[in-house]
Design a protein around this nucleic acid. Structure first.
Lengths: 246, 246
DNA sequence: CGCGCTGTTGAAACTTGTCAAAGTTTGTGG
DNA sequence: CCACAAACTTTGACAAGTTTCAACAGCGCG
């Protein structure tokens, strides 16, 4: 697969970020911090980088030294098993943090690739640790962010361990919808940035199964599907599919 | 289901712990810390509690204020979905840490129950945070522990998302074996503390399937199974089952 | 404008789940 | 310490769900 040319990575002041002025601050790392703490964060996060669709923020095995926050765009993380199977471990929207899984081994265990032209804020982890030693509420906040990641991975485990294909896709759509809402977008209409195969990989299904379930949902009037354009027509019924007692 | 009577929870000096003298220190939270840092940890972890088989260390919804380290015994954590399904999210052996998933909401999202008579070290989280603000290497270590939890949850996601029943059980047995080895026990012979149903719940399989796969492994000479007593006879072949190219 | 990637759909094969019955172990109370 | 009940495990037959293989359609990029 030919790889897109990397766009120049501007580390210049033009791309200097300021958490305190970022419209994502409630969703992102700064969430819940005081104004003074925000200004401390500003000293930390000095670099944004741009990525073209298809470009990698990092690859499995790369040394870890920073976390990345999605400033604009959409990312996918995926891991390779020893036996060569590739699995998508997450999709990341604006305000979400990538790279926490690299802290333990000081190497990134997964690939992170842009699914559309995107921009990331680079958060040097050593400096974040330093700052969080001085600011207890930032420290607590970082711990909460990491813990939230654990909880959300566990809920994917539950999805994979106990749900059937329809339930998985319904849960997936509702999850996207909810995250879109939190970002001020329509809860019911959006473009999927990922392929059926990536959705399937994330949900533990084959791409054909994903496609079939989309078709079934479509014919039942739950969603309007036109390739990547999705319109959720009946959120309550989707919810009832997820919550189906077994 | 009748619940066992709680054993008295001794908070006395008799049960005072000392990480610096604990034979699990290399496996547990203290792993990799200097002697001076260990002594700081000693000031933190002052309480051990004992649990009878079937007793809960905490339940979903309980307020979070401490992490727990398994000192002796064996624990299982499980979550309840909204629709009433219960899923096992982990099995914990000596030296392993429970409760990280409670930091984000300040409530435990899962139940933690002893699968045999056990002892836990109670680690007050606020104090751990305090201490880790003063000791950068403890701070880094805590972050690594949390990150390791994320990575291990992700590898369960991969297992659930891409492996078939035989592969899952083989991976599960190899994982147990490896953790037993790290604790100085035999890598090939152990008692399963959990039921087939709990294994199935963890692996996203029904208990009958778990039982059948055990029987198949048995008849193929991979393991000797007598109820909960397991003897792994052919680790290389188990590995090759896990690593099967799809 | 056409090639390749992505998505859809069908039929058959396979894996796992469901239901049912019987055997085994464990724990409790007499 | 034994007997009984409850919980756990095993096994079989069948059903349901998912994957596999295959063919084809559609869209988008060069």
């Amino acid at each position: 697969m030919p790889e897109p040319e990397p766009v120049a990575n501007f580390d210049t002041d033009a791309f200097k970020s300021a958490c305190s002025k970022c419209n994502l601050r409630e969703l992102c790392l700064p969430g819940g911090l005081s104004h003074a703490e925000l200004e401390q964060l500003d000293t930390l996060i000095r670099v944004r980088r741009q990525y073209r669709k298809g470009e990698y923020a990092y690859r499995a095995g790369d040394p870890f030294d920073s976390l990345f926050a999605v400033r604009t765009g959409f990312f996918k993380t995926s891991m390779l098993t020893e036996d060569g199977r590739d699995q998508v471990t997450g999709f990341l929207m604006t305000g979400e943090l990538m790279g926490l899984d690299g802290i333990s081994t000081e190497r990134h265990p997964c690939d992170a690739v842009a699914l559309e032209d995107s921009e990331l804020c680079v958060i040097p982890f050593a400096k974040l640790e330093e700052l969080s030693r001085e600011a207890p509420s930032l420290q607590r906040h970082l711990h909460k962010v990491m813990s939230r990641e654990i909880v959300s991975d566990q809920s994917v485990m539950m999805l994979l361990g106990s749900m059937r294909a329809e339930e998985r896709l319904a849960a997936f759509l509702l999850n996207l919808s909810q995250r879109m809402t939190a970002r001020g977008y329509s809860p019911s209409e959006f473009y999927l940035r990922m392929t059926r195969e990536a959705i399937g990989s994330y949900l533990g299904l084959k791409l054909e199964t994903v496609s079939r379930v989309f078709s079934r949902f479509h014919s039942e009037g739950l969603v309007a599907v036109q390739q990547k354009h999705i319109q959720i027509l009946d959120i309550p019924r989707l919810r009832s599919i997820v919550g189906q007692q077994c």
